[in-house]
Design a binder for these strands. Structure first.
Length: 507
DNA sequence: GAGAATGAAAG
DNA sequence: CTTTCATTCTC
């Protein structure tokens, strides 16, 4: 991260926006050298929230000596996203003394392949024709489908994807297109960089999906238990006990010889999943159910999870806040918002008076409006049609996937105003400014005059004739080494995304 | 408990 | 190999 990159003088024509950012960011922050080209993500758009200004603070590996959080296997310091759904007790503190291993991994990935993003992928790729993967449909795959996948893998049960994996998968195609390469190392890298930049609502949405995915995965494979292989033998060749022990504890399934040692399915520890199974209907078999016939017609997504409030007879919920639909044997959505104070979107879809929802993902308790971020789901038809008329795209109609769920092409552009209508004046202003900055950050060219952004959009330069790749556009100063100009990183952010008030002198 | 290790996708 | 996060294993 801190690595002194080539520090090229060429700034890919991003001087304008860089200066713009610098103007805003250097006022209250010690000016870094990299600031000029730092392309501070949100630096210019100090995000106001009730008189509080938040600054996105990417991790600073060097400075974060106190407690910089988790480190990945590769030694990189993991960003603190503070997943609201993390069941594990914050694995936050990382003792500074424990740098026994490699403090930092050089990362063989070529630096030139790790572009510095100016905005999250949800913004950068919002106008691309490449459709996003319908993660909502994915996480709602019926158990039957899931079991077929297992059979296809010769009985191997994979782990459910976590929020980031879902995110990465969702944007993989667009990311590849955006970077103009098929290297998934790059996709992962870019996704990893984009993930902490994503707005709260976006990450919350993927956290929701991850939660749903986990629940449906557990429902489809009640006997599954994650059991990582003890193949730490690779490293500690010393304590090479044996992996035959694992074989002994196997339930004796015939199909277990494929992947070395890794037994992911154990029948013995059903108790561990008892909590998850407890609220399941007795007929967990559910092979004969037509999955999504009426699932989304039913109003169970309007339920709240207030403890004392009974749920309708056709729904139940567990401690995780997911609603289980017995008719489909599928978990639908979470009903609780663990961090409501971080939502700057209204609790209801103000565009529709909270009445209409387009996809189940918007049926959760959050009622987030993510259409602007190009996420599948949460896109009202109003947005689609409005965008349709704006962009001139041929009829944008909801199509349905094999699960009977609507899948919307992502033709719409970010039109934040409609979502703000019913908000208080000051909130409208906040969100508008925030959106404007994101919009601007996604289009460095438009930094000359943000008003021209719409012209850019409608000029139809998205799909075909782009002479220069986004990849290069967004490649910032590599010398920055991952630091955003004038930013401070707090090890204990006041919000899950690392946003925090800079306060006065701060640090 | 903390920290290390694994594995989810994918080409 | 590459990413973050969830989970389990190991001291």
């Amino acid at each position: 991260m801190i690595t002194q990159g080539p520090s090229p003088e060429d700034d890919y024509g991003l001087e304008a926006i860089a200066q713009h950012n610098a103007i805003h960011s250097t006022e209250q922050f010690p000016p870094y050298e990299e600031d000029a080209k730092g392309l501070g993500i949100y630096s210019g758009s100090l995000f106001h929230d009730d008189d509080q200004i938040y600054v996105h603070n990417p991790p600073t590996p060097r400075s974060g000596t106190a407690s910089e959080g988790v480190r990945t296997r590769s030694g990189r310091s993991a960003r603190r996203t503070d997943s609201p759904f993390s069941t594990s007790k914050s694995r936050v503190s990382k003792s500074p003394a424990t740098r026994s291993k490699k403090e930092k991994k050089p990362s063989k990935l070529d630096k030139s392949k790790t572009p510095k993003l100016t905005a999250p992928l949800s913004i950068l790729t919002k106008d691309m024709d490449v459709p996003l993967k319908d993660m909502d449909a994915w996480v709602h795959r019926p158990a039957e489908t899931r079991r077929k996948e297992v059979e296809k893998r010769n009985g191997y049960v994979t782990r459910p994807m976590n929020s980031f994996m879902l995110y990465r998968s969702c944007y993989a195609e667009r990311t590849k297109q955006w970077c103009l390469q098929n290297n998934h190392q790059v996709v992962s890298s870019v996704s990893g960089e984009s993930w902490p930049m994503e707005p709260e609502e976006v990450r919350n949405q993927f956290n929701e999906w991850a939660k749903i995915e986990r629940a449906n995965h557990a429902a489809a494979h009640p006997e599954y238990k994650f059991s990582p292989s003890k193949a730490s033998n690779k490293r500690k060749k010393g304590d090479f006990s044996d992996d035959e022990d694992d074989a002994s504890e196997l339930d004796g399934d015939p199909d277990g010889e494929y992947r070395g040692g890794s037994r992911t399915v154990r029948q013995k520890r059903l108790a561990d999943n008892a909590a998850a199974v407890a609220y399941l209907p007795s007929n967990v078999g559910f092979e004969s159910h037509p999955y999504y016939g009426q699932q989304y017609e039913q109003p169970q997504y309007a339920y709240t999870s207030e403890p004392g409030r009974p749920l309708p007879s056709n729904a139940g919920y567990d401690g995780s806040g997911l609603v289980f639909n017995p008719q489909t044997s599928i978990y639908v959505h979470a009903t609780m918002n663990p961090h409501p104070q971080y939502n700057y979107m209204p609790a209801q879809d103000v565009r529709t008076g909270g009445m209409r929802v387009s996809t189940p993902s918007s049926m959760n308790g959050h009622h987030q409006s993510l259409g602007g971020y190009g996420l599948p789901g949460n896109i009202s038809t109003d947005d689609l049609f409005a965008s349709n008329s704006r962009t001139g795209t041929p009829s944008v109609q909801a199509q349905y996937n094999s699960y009977g769920q609507p899948v919307y092409p992502q033709y719409h552009s970010y039109t934040p105003q409609p979502a703000y209508q019913s908000l208080p004046q000051h909130q409208q202003q906040q969100m508008y400014e925030h959106a404007q900055y994101l919009q601007q950050a996604s289009q460095p060219q438009a930094a000359i005059d943000p008003a021209l952004a719409s012209v850019f959009e409608e000029s139809g330069n998205v799909g075909g004739g782009r002479e220069q790749s986004h990849f290069e556009d967004a490649m910032g100063d590599l010398a920055g080494g991952g630091e955003y100009a004038g930013m401070e990183y707090f090890d204990e952010p006041t919000s899950p995304n690392g946003w925090r008030r800079p306060e006065l002198g701060g640090q």
